[in-house]
């Protein structure tokens, strides 16, 4: 499947990485549909990308938003999933409400979203899904219990989709970035530049990796994960 004129939905499309990815997709003649869940997100997309992309509203915290999304009957050949809500805290200190809400948004509703998206892809018998996970799925820091476990759970969903649907030309790939200079991690990384300096990933590095795995050249990678961290976590200090 050549990638030109294909349509790519980007969950979390208003994030810094999402915007970087949209720019790269456009350069490669792939039509980008970044999702947003707030007016500020939509404004970020418009300011950075103007009319060159097609923003779509999707709020994974609301199941009705997922159903509304599919009522629009949009079709995509590619999905890049970058979305994730922020909640850090020691497991024993988190509120019951936050735990339930976190898994509802990041695991339950996302799985329902993937169910309908892949059913639609099955009709066309083509689809490539890239999930941007995190090294926290394997090596969570303190405070990342929900984040890491939700990432790991969704990795399993993507892997299973790849196994179940490969026969129908629908495949999946998981990228686990290490320390990426973007969003919520930026301040943490800047405080630790003496340790992390050479290993830090820029948003464009991740965007390039995603593009590679979307393209035909990367399609033999299916239902598996790869770590993008310049070798940082391969050191025995971390394993």
């Amino acid at each position: 499947m050549g990638q030109k004129n294909k349509r790519c939905l980007i969950l979390g499309g208003s994030s810094e990485i999402g915007i970087e990815l949209s720019k790269l997709l456009l350069k490669n003649s792939i039509v980008s549909y970044p999702t947003y869940s707030s007016n500020s997100g939509l404004n970020r997309i418009k300011q950075a990308l103007g009319q060159s992309v097609i923003p779509v509203f999707l709020d994974l915290s609301l199941l009705d938003s997922v159903y509304d999304f599919f009522n629009k009957q949009l079709e995509f050949e590619y999905l890049v999933d970058l979305a994730h809500t922020n909640l850090e805290g020691l497991v024993a200190s988190l509120s019951d409400k936050d735990i339930i809400s976190y898994y509802n948004v990041n695991v339950v509703n996302r799985t329902i979203f993937l169910k309908y998206l892949t059913r639609n892809m099955l009709i066309k018998r083509k689809g490539r899904l890239i999930y941007v996970s995190s090294t926290a799925a394997k090596y969570p820091n303190k405070g990342q219990g929900l984040y890491g476990s939700a990432k790991l759970a969704i990795e399993a969903i993507y892997k299973t989709i790849g196994i179940e649907m490969y026969k129908k030309s629908i495949s999946t790939m998981i990228i686990r970035p290490g320390y990426i200079l973007s969003g919520r991690a930026r301040d943490f990384i800047k405080d630790k530049m003496d340790l992390l300096g050479k290993f830090v990933i820029e948003p464009i590095d991740l965007a390039n990796a995603i593009l590679f795995f979307l393209k035909d050249e990367g399609r033999c990678f299916n239902a598996t994960e790869i770590i993008l961290d310049r070798g940082f976590f391969s050191s025995k200090r971390w394993s």
């Binding site: 059913r119 099955l122 179940e164 649907m165 129908k168």
Partner: peptide
């Protein structure tokens, strides 16, 4: 027919 074929059949019947 495998389970994925039956899923495809189900979607096609629906459509």
């Amino acid at each position: 027919m495998e389970s994925i074929d039956l899923l495809e059949l189900s979607i096609a019947i629906n459509s």
